[in-house]
Structure formats: C-alpha cells, structure tokens
Simulated scan of single mutants.
Amino acid sequence: MIWVNLGSFTLLLGVMFALFTSIAAFYAAQKRNDLIPLVKLGGTLTNLLVLVAFIALLVVLVNDLFYVRYVAHHSNSQLPIFYKISAAWGGHEGSLLFWALLLGIWNQIFQRWAKSLTPGLALNALGVLHAVMTGFLLFILAGSSPFTLIDPAPPEGADLNPLLQDIGLVIHPPFLYLGYVGTTHVFALSLAALITGEAGRAWASSCRPWALAAWGFLSIGILIGSMWAYYELGWGGWWFWDPVENASLMPWFCLTALIHCLLVA
C-alpha cells in the first residue's frame, strides 16, 4: 500500500510544483531574472516527482498488487517480468503517466539546453511546457489515475491483452511517445516566440534540433509499429490506414513539412 500512496501523493505534489513553475516562469520572463533559479528548481522537482510516481507504478506491477485496479486489469502473476514492466504503458492510465514521465525527461533536457536561448524565449517556453505538464497531471488525477484501488481485490489479474504480449509493445510505444512528446517543445518554442516577438532565424535554428529529434523518434516508432502490425495482427500489409496508425502519421507529415521550412529559413 505504501507504493500506491506514494504514487498518488507524488502526482498530487507534481501538479502543485508544475503549476507553480509555470506561473513562476511566465512571471520571471517579465524581467524578473532573480526568479530563474526558482523556476529551474521547480521544474527539476516536478520531473523527479513524476519519475517517482512512475517507479511506484512499476513496483506495484512487478509485485502483483492486484488490489490496484490497473494491475488487476492489465497484468497477472504469470506474465514475464518484461511484460509486467511494459504493461505500465499497455493501458490507458499507465500510458498517460508514461507520457508525463517522457515529458518530464524532455523538459529536463530542455531546461539545461535553454541556456543558449534568450531569457525571455527560454522562460516563456518553460512556462508553456510546465502548463502542459500541469494539464496532464490534472487529467491523470481527475479520472485516469493508475493507483485507484479495487475492493475486493481479485486473487489473480485479468492478464495483459494477448496482442500486446509481444516485443513490439516493449519498444514501439516508447519511441512513438518520444516523438509525440518531442513536438511539445516545438509548440512551446513557437508560443514563446509569439509572446516575445522573436520569431526569426535564431528561433528557427533553436527549433530545428527539437523538430528533428521528434521526427526521428516518431519515424522509428511508426516503422516498428508497421512491422508489429504486419506479423502480429495479420493485416497482410505494412499499413492499413487504421485510425490509430493515421494518428501517428499526421504529426509525422506536419513535422516533415516543418523541418523543411526550418531548414530553408
């Protein structure tokens, strides 16, 4: 039970720190450079809290704590350890927390990289990023928490979807999510440029590595997903124009066009 409580508590704290950091970043952008260390500290603490929450989810999955609804619905005691771990992103609630974790990792990298930006652009971008994190964590807490309890607890879990018991689940979603989450930083830089009026060549140069990274991860994720669908689902082809597939293809097209624009800017 301690891990369940820890996961829920860190998510709650994460929302508070993310909201505080977002507000502080926007406020610091108004020529309050003395608040920059506070913004960095708040961002780091937010990311660490999300990491702890995800570790708590992994612990309850690996230890077969079936009084947690997510574990009871997406795992069982007979699953190999790597499928128990990948079950963390095999269901709705867990995948949202995994998404928040990846966003936190990207945010931490961005926070260190942002030293190369002007203070106004960096702080406004960080404000946007932590506002997005606040929204994600609020959504998880409001109705998609992976730490919800079930009573009475079943003696055994319902098992992970058989179609997901494949190496594809272990590697496909992380790459795809890294691509999705990477676009958040292009979005944040774009909004920051609109706020500060710095949408010039320097902004295009700063966006380029983030767009390329997101495009690269998304490309790998789509490729792995196509291979997985071909041999696992038996669709008889690499692409079936399924809505789930198209949901990853549309951002890929947008990123491809954006990268072209950034390269010629």
Rank of each mutant, 00 (worst) to 15 (best):
F66S: 08
A188M: 00
L189F: 02
I109Y: 10
D159H: 03
L163D: 14
A25H: 00
C207F: 01
A213M: 05
L194G: 11
T46C: 11
A53R: 08
N47H: 03
C207V: 09
H92K: 11
A192R: 00
H74E: 08
W99G: 09
A122R: 01
N47T: 12
W252L: 07
H172D: 07
H92I: 12
R32V: 06
K84E: 03
A56N: 09
G104A: 07
A193V: 03
V128N: 01
L189Y: 01
W238R: 12
A188H: 00
V181I: 05
E198N: 11
V50N: 00
L11M: 09
L65N: 08
Q111P: 10
T46M: 12
W3L: 14
L255A: 06
I81N: 10
G94H: 05
N33Q: 13
E198L: 12
N63R: 14
A257P: 07
L48T: 14
A114L: 03
F9G: 14
A72W: 00
P146E: 04
A142K: 08
S77N: 13
T118M: 00
L263K: 11
G221F: 00
I195E: 04
T256V: 06
S206G: 12
G135C: 06
A100M: 09
L45E: 11
G168A: 04
W228Y: 00
L35W: 08
V68M: 02
P37K: 03
T256L: 00
S86F: 00
L103V: 10
L79N: 05
H185G: 04
T184E: 10
L48W: 13
N107E: 15
M1I: 14
L45Y: 04
Y83E: 15
I222A: 08
F175H: 03
